[in-house]
Amino acid sequence: MSSTVSHLGHYQAKVARSRATSEPAWIRWSLIAIALAFLSLFLFIPLAAVFTEALRKGFETYIAALIEPDALSAIKLTVIAAAISVPLNLVFGVAAAWATAKFDFKGKSVLITLIDLPFAVSPVIAGLIYVLIFGLQGWFGEWLIDNDYKVIFAIPGIVLATVFVTFPFVARELIPLMQAQGKEEEEAALVLGASGWQILWRVTLPNIKWGLLYGVILTNARAMGEFGAVSVVSGHIRGMTNTMPLHVEILYNEYNYAAAFAVASLLAFLALVTLALKTFIEWQSARSARTTEQLSEE
């Protein structure tokens, strides 16, 4: 009861600003209008266009484009790539966050910067570096051919490129979160006799679950949507090494717009679900942050 009231008070304190620190109504509404116009031009109208174009030739064409074998195989490959790269980067993210947030060591900030590297690298280059290693002329090229392994123009290459471009997401989400939470609860568990794994499972992970989920969702969205890096390593073999975004490109270049937008709409829908989940998680973690805040206020 009291908490609801205090939230409301908090909310009002944030919204209601004194006359001295707010603008006249006409300025307010003009600024809102300009911002919305900008967002419409670059966000809302293109988003609406995806769904409109997808359904332009009717619902049947739409469904047909989604269930034809090449589309289904692209969906399957996309799911596989995400299903492998998300857990890999999840485990990495937890390990990296544990090492950097719970301990002090030399070169820590360098390490954190290096984890960020894939954000700064063009996806095209991300694909290129794996071609240099595993491609025909690459370091392992001959060995791979001799042993009849395929990496480039095959699923392993697609997975590797996807892992690279989604590499930092979970770690970047968890490192600041775990740094902010400190290590008192872990130390408390340690004094009470818990082992390392017990601390991780019973204390640390439950505390970072929202941040973890957030990172996973972002990783997943990027993994399923990656285009540039995957485009370089895939070889665009229809029904074999095509992911959904690549399939969109092929259809589009064949002027099969309705089908291209049909598959694109599926990806756009995925993006919207991602945003919805993201908003929900932000809401959840803000709520738990507020209760923690009350805890420290008393």
């Binding site: 967002l39 966000l43 809302f44 109208i45 293109p46 988003l47 266009a49 995806v50 174009e53 972002l218 969205a221 990027r222 399923m224 949507g225 990656e226 285009f227 540039g228 959904m244 975004p245 690549l246 969109v248 490109e249 589009y252 717009y257 291209a260 937008f261 694109a264 990806l267 756009a268 995925l270 993006a271 919207l272 991602t274 945003l275 919805a276 993201k278 908003t279």
Partner: peptide, 22 residues
């Protein structure tokens, strides 16, 4: 507020064809 993050979540290929269409 939620939709501002769309460019993070929307695959770039989809953004590309959507912007082209518009």
């Amino acid at each position: 507020d939620a939709l501002v993050d769309l460019p993070f979540a929307l695959p770039t290929a989809v953004a590309g064809i959507a912007l082209t269409a518009v």
